[in-house]
Simulated assay, not measured.
Amino acid sequence: MIDSGESAVSDSILFVTHSPQRSGAESVMLDLAAECHRRGMSVSVACPVGPLSESFPPWAVHVEIPHLGRDHGRRTRAGAAWGMARSMVVAARTLRAHRGTAIVANSAHTLPALRLAGVRSVAWLVHDHLVSRKTRVFIGAGRPLLHHVVAVSPTTASALDGLVDHVAVGRLGVDIPDDAPTGALPTGPLRAGTLSVLTPWKGVDVFLEAVARLDDATAVVAGEAFPGDVGYAAQLRERAGHPDLAGRVTFPGRVRAADALAQWTVHVSASIAPEAGPLTAMEAMAAGVPVVATDHGNPRNLLADRRGVLVPPGDPVALADAMSSIAADPHGTAAMVRRAYAHVAEHHDRRETVPALLDLLLGTTSSSAPAAPADAVAAPSRGGGGSR
């Protein structure tokens, strides 16, 4: 197992995550699980029953635990807190059987349950950029267990400053096509798209308001809502039915990124809160699709040096202008697309980033691990700064 005194590699590993849903963080976790399987380790994943567990490959053993996140069925804050505490205890009973296994926590929500289970040592993969008061409590409960803390980007690491003893910085990766894109845009009117979970902080409503300002543009909102955000998704569809957008917006649900991106003029990440990646922007850059993203979090690093266009968060006017500029300057856009592809091909190739990320989590070394680029390096956080 991973022990607090030294790094050792177990022949089995358990990934633990709090939600039954599958989004970017869970996809990264499954990539790491596949790498463990490739290395000959037996792999288990502890999570609630749902879309995530239903997507497991045959070699992954599902360990069922209750949902450790927000309970949308409880109407009061006290009721939600009580329900979460009870779920932590139930999960701990199940996790107790895995105390001799190398454990990777894929979410801060799992840390109290792992502490209750008597686990000695945990590697924590940090996906979230912002640290809420509730998350600080979870980290405080789990801090004595944390042997390796690995953030997926420098901005994610910076949010942990003073809250853990040390944080390493890895990087996310995507599939990189062998052929570099030419940067040529599709013919016809501007077709903007976003690949996103339909939740308020992703800013899809801002995206729709921006498209409404572009008379000839069409939009694709590719993604699904989690159970707690079905009301927000309904609001988006209602907005798309207004006269200024009627017939111009489609909602295809969850789609393969490559299939969607091949039809788009521009990919938009309109998040109103800072992103740790986002993976979807990297996928667009690899596919040769220009990216417009909000100017905070990791996109500020990812799209630096004219690899994309950055706009202020929550500003549909600036977002509309940025999308228009993509179509208005095909030569400049083509050069931007080529720079973007070159960057992700060098620094965010999943064939290299996944093994390197796993090595950081397990405390192992790999001769194939590439050198970290400027947008994937951060100084270790201050130690002994209290708990969160």
Results as ranks from 00 to 15, higher is better:
I13R: 11
T365G: 07
V291R: 13
A217G: 04
A334K: 05
S269A: 10
P181K: 08
H242K: 15
F56M: 05
L195N: 04
L14F: 07
V150D: 03
V354K: 06
L358I: 06
P313S: 13
V104A: 07
A334V: 10
S23K: 02
L358G: 06
L145D: 10
T156Y: 01
G288I: 01
P370L: 00
A217W: 02
G384Y: 03
F138I: 00
G183Q: 07
E26M: 06
L195V: 05
R237I: 00
H98C: 02
G193W: 00
D375L: 08
A33L: 11
P227H: 01
M1N: 11
G314F: 05
A270G: 01
K202P: 03
P355S: 11
Y341H: 13
H267V: 05
A46T: 02
V167E: 00
H72C: 10
D244F: 01
V249T: 11
L32F: 07
I176P: 03
P66A: 12
M282I: 01
T353I: 05
H148L: 00
G140H: 08
K134H: 13
V317F: 07
L30F: 08
A91K: 07
H347D: 09
R86K: 14
G314K: 12
M84P: 00
P252W: 07
G83R: 15
L146A: 00
V89L: 11
R191Q: 09
L146Y: 08
P330A: 12
H331K: 10
D161S: 05
A379S: 13
R120S: 14
A151F: 04
A25I: 01
A46C: 05
L146I: 05
V149A: 05
P20Y: 01
E224V: 09
P57G: 11
P299L: 03
G100P: 11
T135L: 12
S12V: 13
V221L: 12
G69D: 08
T218Y: 09
L145A: 03
W124K: 00
G288T: 03
I65F: 02
G386F: 13
L146G: 11
R351A: 06
L361A: 07
L302F: 09
A246K: 08
G69A: 13
A322Q: 02
H129N: 15
H129K: 10
G188K: 12
G383T: 10
V204C: 13
T135M: 15
D71G: 04
R256I: 06
F56A: 04
A260G: 05
V337G: 02
R191W: 01
A91S: 14
A371Q: 12
